[in-house]
Design a protein around this nucleic acid. Structure first.
Lengths: 225, 225
DNA sequence: AGCAAGAAACAGGCATGATTGTTTTTTCCG
DNA sequence: CGGAAAAAACAATCATGCCTGTTTCTTGCT
């Protein structure tokens, strides 16, 4: 799916008709179908990879004709874009759930985020992120979402660890380290570059390091600034 | 390039004619052309991504007609396979250079490997590794190379750090951690998931942790076993 | 309320463009 | 001259965007 001819001022083929507060039968069905197509797209990207995901495949996966799909989405690029946005929100929701689940210590937060990062959504997102490297249209969509995720991730995390407030630089480092190790592991396991048996020990190592960086636990290392 | 119709018993269109020790002019030119095509393939994968790399593109990049190229390689899959093997050897050579450059301490080794991992060869390799996730033909070629690299990597590294011999488990962990962090960083920088300003601090963090794991520097943590 | 006009959802088909493997033709060197 | 290297031509496949036709739902008018 090239995602090439994404017209700039493309308005959706179907207007949501949020006006009149009238939630008609059709508007409901339309939103439902759109959601079905988006989910099918994500499934296809996970199964076949972004490069091998075609519009007929998505339509088949969604249980729709290709013509019907393109009635809702104008073209293939719009489908991809919608899937990216959905994946971004999925990622945010997943992290939010991990936070709300009540995990005040770094150990459980690491475990939880590790579980989240192994979900299909992460696979799909990384497929798209790598494709965006050589696809300017994808990159234009993805880049703002990447920074948005970073910001929200840090904003959420800082609430969990008020002890770190005295050392924002160190905190950001700790967050980056966690993301790097966890995502790096996920990708290495995915691509067969790392044995699965190494996962648990690695999680332990990461936790050790994070704890060692925590100013509340090691005040000596972080003199008052 | 689908790499789909890779016939099992496919013999090369041009036999390398290593026999007879007769290095004819043509055999030389043939090998030279093959090498040019392989390098062009790697360049294309870096520039356009594996998914968007087509046989006409490779031929153009190599300064050849497509017909001439397929005279040397039978089909597109053979080109990809040759490029993968070349990339594997490149990776091994790069790491070997880092070792031979004489870097007895972990700090310089980390710095050196970080530099190696930012080369185009790594980008191309990761493109192929991710594509292999959903491409069985690619996976069949790549998987053995992945384990081969892991083994050689560890075998080389252990020579550099004889102090670790007392703790092979910890050593393997340290190696895995280094690879995970460095490759994770490389990918995150590549995909815009991480700011480049975080690289140096992260390298420092990794070095800290590796040193803390070193039994020679922290004998207390590793009682004689 | 009832009916007709309009719009939306859906399905299928068509023409274009691109890529691939194969085959045929030309060029060049021993 | 003969064979390998290089180039060009060829046919088949496939994904895409667009267009047409059919069914279902909404809306408005009498």
């Amino acid at each position: 799916m090239p995602l090439a001819a994404m017209k700039p001022g493309a308005k959706p083929a179907v207007r949501p008709r949020a006006e009149t507060a009238g939630v008609t039968h059709q508007s409901l069905k339309s939103a439902q179908t759109r959601a079905r197509v988006i989910e099918a797209t994500i499934r296809c990207i996970v199964k076949y990879g972004y490069a091998n995901t075609t519009t007929p495949q998505i339509a088949a996966e969604a249980g729709l004709s290709r013509g019907a799909m393109l009635h809702h989405f104008e073209n293939g690029a719009a489908v991809t874009k919608a899937a990216i946005v959905e994946l971004h929100e999925k990622r945010l929701r997943a992290f939010r759930r991990a936070v709300d689940a009540g995990a005040p210590d770094s150990t459980t937060l690491i475990q939880t985020y590790w579980r989240q990062i192994q979900r299909p959504a992460f696979v799909a997102f990384h497929e798209l992120a790598l494709a965006a490297r050589t696809n300017p249209d994808l990159a234009r969509i993805l880049q703002p979402l990447q920074v948005d995720f970073r910001e929200r991730f840090n904003a959420q995390a800082v609430l969990l660890f008020p002890q770190w407030q005295s050392d924002p630089v160190g905190f950001k480092l700790a967050m980056t380290l966690s993301q790097t190790v966890l995502e790096g592991m996920a990708i290495n396991v995915l691509t067969g570059a790392m044995e699965e048996t190494m996962v648990e020990p690695m999680l332990g190592l990461l936790d050790e390091k994070i704890r060692a960086m925590n100013p509340a636990l090691n005040p000596a290392l972080h003199p008052a600034q």
